[in-house]
Design a protein around this nucleic acid. Structure first.
Lengths: 232, 232
DNA sequence: TGATCATATATTTTCGAAAATCACAAGGGG
DNA sequence: CCCCTTGTGATTTTCGAAAATATATGATCA
């Protein structure tokens, strides 16, 4: 088990089919902004870029289409999905619905292992921030992995495959917007404290308070990226 | 514009790429039960069946994977997703969350055109039932199209692309279970009356009543297909 | 000039066959 | 007798080139 090369997500290494690898690589480059919103995804270019044939590439792209990162038009190829306030609003709306329900179920059903998972994820996030000082910005991919893991840990006990999948997909979709807001961000200690606070309320099974906090947390990205009007 | 051949969904006719066509055809055959839950989707078989090459077929299958109708395992091909009480429970849970929120937004934002759309869809469904007597069973594909159109019309005004897409996908996923319950179904007049009742409450913008009715409506499939325990 | 159409070029999409991988059966050793 | 290895056939996956389609270029005509 060797470390993956720079910039290549480890998931790509373990992909046991080129189509999967293609999907992972393209997704990664879209999320990190190397492939900008609206960019044409020419098959020839991509094939050279990743050294993967046209067939598996196109298959990988097809998968990403249904995940909302790519749009594909009939005989006119694929493009990276555009970003817009409208879209972030939609993502946030959907996330709120999904996560509030998942949280409700998790609080109702969660067992000791669930609680332990939350604390573990929180701890890892905290350690990372301590170690990397204030450069912890979410732009750093491995920090974001921990951040996602934390939010996922809050919901795992919900017992719904679909809610969890939706959460994961929507989290990724929001990443492109979150990247923008990483600059100009408060300090690490505050960031961790906010998450710990949320975790505490959840572990205390205070449903209403937890939901309110989570909702506000989700809205914060929207508020930050498009400060104009952030209603509903 | 000629009528599509028997058993071939019209969407397939207008598909301007073989991959799309493949996705539509396979989806259709899965939903109608011609491809049973758990069935192996061998590329060679499918290629013969639909007279489509391996490349576009596989691309079509890849799309359906992210839509929950197919599962694909690394070097081991694709299978039709299994059905289970567990799964129907999950679908229903997700549908409830999505539709209640979409309904809330639609009632808040709906304009005259939205109201008109609901009445139009209801009318078409009613006419169909009048014309076809009690053989209207949802098993009939074109009736189900009208049924889906009605439920979609209730939500269109919600203004969220993602909520509408999720609704559509989940409706389709539930179709495989609904087919089972079509036998042993009350008479058509009652069916239409129930839907008219729901529409009335929605047009009157009675949020709470509407949501309660819609929730019960969604739960009915679960109750019918797996009568055992239908809790939560 | 501006618009329309034909031609050429670039891209996407699809095919048919090769390569890689898996599943199963037969044989050999403990 | 069971377990592990090895070989064979079937299946998935991928490649490289051909076909189909879109896009750009430039010429012709009003």
């Amino acid at each position: 088990m060797t470390a993956p090369a720079h910039g290549i997500p480890e998931a790509a290494a373990s992909a046991d089919t080129l189509s999967e690898r293609a999907a992972v690589l393209v997704e990664h480059d879209i999320l990190t902004g190397q492939l900008e919103p609206g960019a044409r995804l020419g098959i020839v270019d991509l094939a050279r870029r990743y050294d993967i044939g046209a067939t598996p590439l196109r298959e990988g792209l097809s998968r990403l289409v249904s995940r909302g990162l790519i749009v594909g038009i009939g005989q006119r190829g694929f493009r990276v999905a555009e970003v817009s306030r409208e879209d972030l609003l939609d993502i946030t709306r959907m996330r709120t619905v999904v996560e509030l329900e998942a949280l409700r179920l998790a609080i109702a059903n969660g067992d000791d292992a669930w609680e332990a998972g939350i604390l573990a994820a929180l701890h890892q996030m905290q350690r990372y921030v301590e170690r990397h000082g204030d450069q912890f910005r979410e732009g750093a991919e491995d920090f974001d992995r921990l951040h996602k893991a934390f939010h996922t840990s809050l919901l795992t006990a919900c017992g719904s495959k679909r809610l969890l999948t939706a959460h994961s997909d929507l989290y990724d979709q929001a990443y492109r917007y979150r990247r923008v807001m990483m600059r100009g961000f408060e300090d690490g200690a505050e960031f961790v404290a906010a998450h710990r606070n949320l975790a505490d309320r959840i572990l205390a099974r205070e449903l209403d308070v937890s939901q309110t906090m989570l909702k506000a947390h989700l809205a914060s990205t929207l508020k930050f990226v498009y400060p104009a009007q952030a209603r509903e």
